[in-house]
Design a protein around this nucleic acid. Structure first.
Lengths: 114, 114
DNA sequence: CCCTTATTTCGATAAAAGTCGAATTGTATT
DNA sequence: AATACAATTCGACTTTTATCGAAATAAGGG
């Protein structure tokens, strides 16, 4: 993962509605949620929500797919994984135990997943 | 972790210089780095860097400590851990295997670390 | 085809974030 | 107490982000 992609992803998550939206999709799992359903759950006007969905999609954090009249959104888990890996890359210069706890023990750093 | 804290942390990381700065500290480990050293490594004016350090500190992602004339900054690993846990909380509604891969298998979700 | 539903794009506006030189504060040295 | 050094605060400015109603696009049903 490159710095620009990480900044886009973090920026996409750093907003009240988008953070709530992403967590909603993370919890929804494979089934995903339709745009209208999300707008209703978050209490945000459709046009505003559409703006936020675009941000998350362009940042690579969510995937979209048309189903009949609705558009279904899903969390992109691999993208999330590589974002976390990027943040913790070479933690404590690679020392096995550096007091960082779980953060430093991410099982798969810099995998090819996204 | 609460939503506001997560937004602050994500917003703090969603910026070119601050992301590079945080990763620098993550890699530096327990020794930390002095403000001046960071400014030099990043090629950012002191006043700009100070602004960014404040952002990261207020977001809880870095810790500061005075040492003689310098101020040493360190990554706050527990804060990072709880941020990741917050993002992936109740992933796939708690299903053991949901295709999310590593992301969904965070060992310590919502611990009291930060 | 016309009509309803689902979602996005447009456009104008308001609010927040980033930049950096100059001045300031705090700490050590002689 | 005068000087040098390390870092932060101030202030004026530019750029980016967020909001949401109204109009447009897309898909399916009668």
């Amino acid at each position: 993962m490159k710095a620009d992609a990480a900044i886009d992803a973090l920026g996409a998550l750093a907003q009240e509605h988008r953070l709530a939206l992403f967590r909603l999709l993370v919890q929804a799992g494979d089934g995903g949620l339709a745009a209208g359903m999300i707008a209703e759950k978050l209490g945000v006007p459709n046009s505003s929500l559409s703006f936020h969905l675009t941000q998350l999609r362009e940042a690579g954090l969510v995937l979209q797919e048309r189903q009949h009249r609705s558009i279904i959104y899903r969390a992109n888990y691999p993208a999330m994984n590589s974002l976390v890996a990027y943040l913790l890359e070479n933690c404590c210069a690679g020392a096995a135990d550096c007091g960082a706890g779980v953060a430093c023990e991410t099982p798969a750093q810099e995998r090819k997943s996204a």
